[in-house]
């Protein structure tokens, strides 16, 4: 439409006269489009659904969980049964992932490994969450010198090399599943404490805002609409990313002989056993545990990244 280009005239004959009547304002306002506003969580969920990699990760993790729970039931072989006549058999219809040097079924052991990895990861994340919320919550809530002191302590722990500390603690309290989780928790919670403290400080600011100017908005609504999304997002992401690092730590410790001890099956233990056979061609003994470690960590990492993108309103494009 090149209307602008026209010669200026104070009358436009092509426009009918009857259009020159005042407009019905009520009609206009009712027509103004109300954009559908999704709630924060729904909106985030939609964004997560769109992230194919994150969804692939989520599906893998669901499948892995099912495998950890039901896999050993599906398999006719038990974890620890040794069949010295059936050592180092390659994958077949009888032994899906082959057997190891003691004739144990690698598939069943991989399923048990999944149990241990998921258990360690989730427990570590939960313990970090609990300690982090309590510690960070107190620091943020009390503020002042207490906060200062508590955070100085966190800084020191934060500066220590995580795995070195875990190794030392493991040396002292001895190997085993419980001790791994314990050792991981000793320094693992500091990241969470920092985040929670930051969020609590934010909440305090909200309270201040609320007290100073009440716009008639309900407190519960503000908490639901602004506070929870903003504070829960980073915490959820942190938990998702704690899990793979705990799983790595368990595998690492088991691999250097400090974690789960044979004959129990953990991916780290299996990888360590498999390593010695690298030259003899029993590839399945190394392949399956390492594949599962990598896939699991990959899945948690992409899911964590996806959650971070989905939950951070600032990243909305």
């Amino acid at each position: 439409m090149e209307l602008r280009k026209q010669e200026t005239r104070n009358i436009s004959p092509e426009i009918p006269d009857e259009w020159f009547v005042p407009i019905n304002k009520n009609k206009l306002e009712s027509e103004s489009v109300v954009r559908p506003s999704l709630s924060y969580w729904k909106d985030s969920w939609h964004r997560l659904l769109k992230n194919k990699l994150a969804m692939a990760g989520l599906f893998f993790l669901i499948a892995l969980t099912l495998m950890a729970i039901f896999g050993p039931m599906l398999s006719p072989h038990s974890v620890e049964t040794q069949r010295l006549t059936e050592q180092n058999l390659p994958p077949s219809s009888k032994y899906w992932f082959g057997t190891d040097d003691l004739g144990r079924d690698v598939f069943t052991r991989t399923c048990y490994g999944a149990r241990i990895s998921l258990f360690v990861g989730i427990m570590a994340a939960l313990i970090d969450f609990v300690i982090g919320v309590v510690y960070g919550g107190i620091a943020g809530y009390k503020g002042g010198r207490i906060d200062n002191f508590m955070m100085r302590f966190v800084e020191i722990l934060y500066g220590l090399p995580y795995l070195l500390v875990v190794i030392l603690v493991m040396v002292v309290i001895g190997p085993g599943l419980t001790t791994i989780i314990l050792a991981l928790s000793i320094t693992g919670w500091v990241g969470m404490a920092r985040i929670v403290r930051g969020q609590v400080l934010q909440i305090k600011n909200y309270e201040f805002v609320l007290a100073s100017k009440t716009f008639g908005t309900k407190t519960s609504r503000i908490i639901r609409k602004n506070l929870l999304p903003n504070t829960m997002g980073p915490i959820i992401v942190q938990m998702t990313l704690t899990i793979p690092s705990a799983i790595f730590a368990e595998a690492f410790l088991s691999f250097i002989g400090l974690g789960i001890q044979a004959p129990h099956a953990s991916w780290g233990v299996m990888a360590n056993d498999g390593l010695s056979t690298i030259l003899s061609g029993y590839w399945w003994r190394l392949f399956f545990p390492t594949l599962f470690i990598s896939l699991t960590m990959f899945a948690f990492n992409v899911l964590g990244d996806g959650l971070q993108d989905a939950l951070d309103p600032k990243l909305r494009r």
Binding site: A251, F255, A271, I278, L286, F298, N301
Partner: peptide, 29 residues
């Protein structure tokens, strides 16, 4: 990058040995 973060270094090491030292012996084990 995500793969690099997800594959533990000891897994990476075994992978490299298997591929580049055993299967195709370019590098020493």
């Amino acid at each position: 990058a995500v793969l690099g973060i997800s594959i533990p270094n000891f897994v990476m090491a075994t992978l490299l040995i298997q591929q580049l030292a055993v299967n195709i012996p370019i590098f020493p084990v």
